[in-house]
Simulated assay, not measured.
Amino acid sequence: MHAPEEGKLRVGFTELIDLAAEKVGGKALLASDEFFAGKENLLKPGRGVFIPDKYTEQGKWMDGWESRRKRVPGHDWCILQLGLPGVLRGVDVDTNHFVGNFPEYASVDALEVEGSPSAQSLVDAKWTRILPQLRLQGGSRNLFPILSEQRWTHLRLNIYPDGGVARFRVHGEVRPDLTRLTHANGSVDLAAAENGGTVSACNDAFFGPKDNLILPGRAANMGEGWETRRKRLLPGFDWIVVKLAVPGSVERVEVDTAHYKGNFPESASLEGITLREPVVDFANAHDLVWTELLPRTKLQADHRHDFESELKAKGPFTHVRLKIFPDGGVSRLRVHGRPA
């Protein structure tokens, strides 16, 4: 039976961004064995699929990372590079569809190293154990909180003794190079996840996760943005709050509705605020006084909207709130400015 504190962590950390995901630049660098299924599958989106009649020359095709049956002492492992270095709050070792071939146990080691070291050079690096060897369940999301406060750049997933894992999620908080960010000569995207921006809250994320709004690059399809359900009680609006990487003055804003054609918002507005204390419940924080940056402005389908002269205030701000009227999808929000 898990302690109440652990239960709270289990619920909370899965809401944080996946620092290892393929779509944020995460990479599977090296594995001790990937005979049946490649290590790259660990970081792909979704939970993995199962196709009963699909086989390869090696055997049954599986949507995950799977090593052969070990006939010698030892265990298998996979070294991963985080796309977004940061502090870990929990991991999800997902054994979806691996039921007779999942590992009995798993553990996680971590490393902080700058630059681009070769994968082979990391094998004998000085790793730190951040998750002890724990029992796994087959066909399940195995959620484990991480209690380390250190910043990490690489992880090693160890499985005992062998077997298959469908996906490996690493939830946490981005810790960018703040010296580089605060000494930047030009403007930077203060909202970007790679710079340390985080989505604090939103009122609805039925079709598209909230964190998609601030991920790197442009969305590849409609599934890679933030999208709310259809609003049936009008008038009204949906909203999302982004905590900027550092307090800053806003110079230009980009609202990208890429791929949203029959479901883009009719209009949008943007507000800013400076908060000295954290707010836990933005939905009910009615006493907050927001400053209008961008008045309610009509949007277009599948379009990159740039706003500069239209901005009514510059800040500095610690948070921004995007409102969309009445509902719909936005693929990316960029808040270009200068750290205060």
Rank of each mutant, 00 (worst) to 15 (best):
L80I: 13
L80F: 03
Q81R: 13
Q81G: 14
L82V: 00
L82E: 00
L82Q: 00
G83P: 01
L84M: 12
P85F: 00
P85T: 00
G86L: 03
G86N: 05
G86A: 08
G86C: 05
V87H: 09
V87S: 12
V87A: 08
L88I: 12
R89T: 06
G90R: 06
G90S: 11
G90D: 11
V91W: 07
D92W: 07
D92N: 15
D92Q: 14
V93F: 09
V93K: 09
D94H: 15
D94P: 15
D94A: 12
D94K: 14
T95N: 06
T95D: 10
T95G: 10
T95Q: 08
N96T: 03
H97R: 11
H97M: 07
H97F: 08
H97E: 06
F98D: 01
V99W: 07
V99Q: 14
V99F: 10
G100Y: 02
N101A: 07
N101P: 09
F102D: 09
F102H: 15
F102G: 09
P103W: 07
P103G: 08
E104S: 11
Y105S: 13
Y105K: 15
Y105D: 12
S107P: 14
S107V: 08
V108H: 12
D109G: 11
A110W: 01
A110K: 07
A110G: 07
L111D: 00
L111M: 01
E112N: 09
V113G: 10
V113H: 13
V113W: 09
E114L: 06
E114V: 12
G115S: 05
P117N: 05
S118A: 06
A119W: 00
A119P: 00
S121L: 06
L122D: 07
V123C: 08
D124K: 03
D124H: 02
A125K: 02
A125T: 02
K126M: 10
W127Q: 05
W127K: 05
R129N: 15
I130A: 14
I130D: 14
I130N: 14
L131A: 13
L131Y: 13
L131I: 15
P132E: 14
Q133C: 13
L134S: 15
L134C: 11
L134F: 05
L134H: 11
L136F: 10
L136C: 12
Q137G: 10
G138S: 04
G138Y: 00
G139I: 00
G139P: 02
S140K: 14
S140C: 08
S140D: 09
R141K: 12
R141S: 10
N142D: 06
N142W: 03
L143K: 02
L143P: 11
F144C: 11
P145I: 12
P145V: 13
P145W: 08
I146A: 00
L147S: 14
L147H: 15
S148D: 04
S148E: 01
E149N: 03
E149D: 02
Q150H: 08
R151L: 02
R151F: 02
R151D: 05
W152Q: 04
T153E: 00
H154G: 05
L155S: 04
L155E: 01
R156T: 04
R156F: 02
L157S: 10
N158T: 09
I159Q: 04
I159E: 04
I159D: 03
I159S: 04
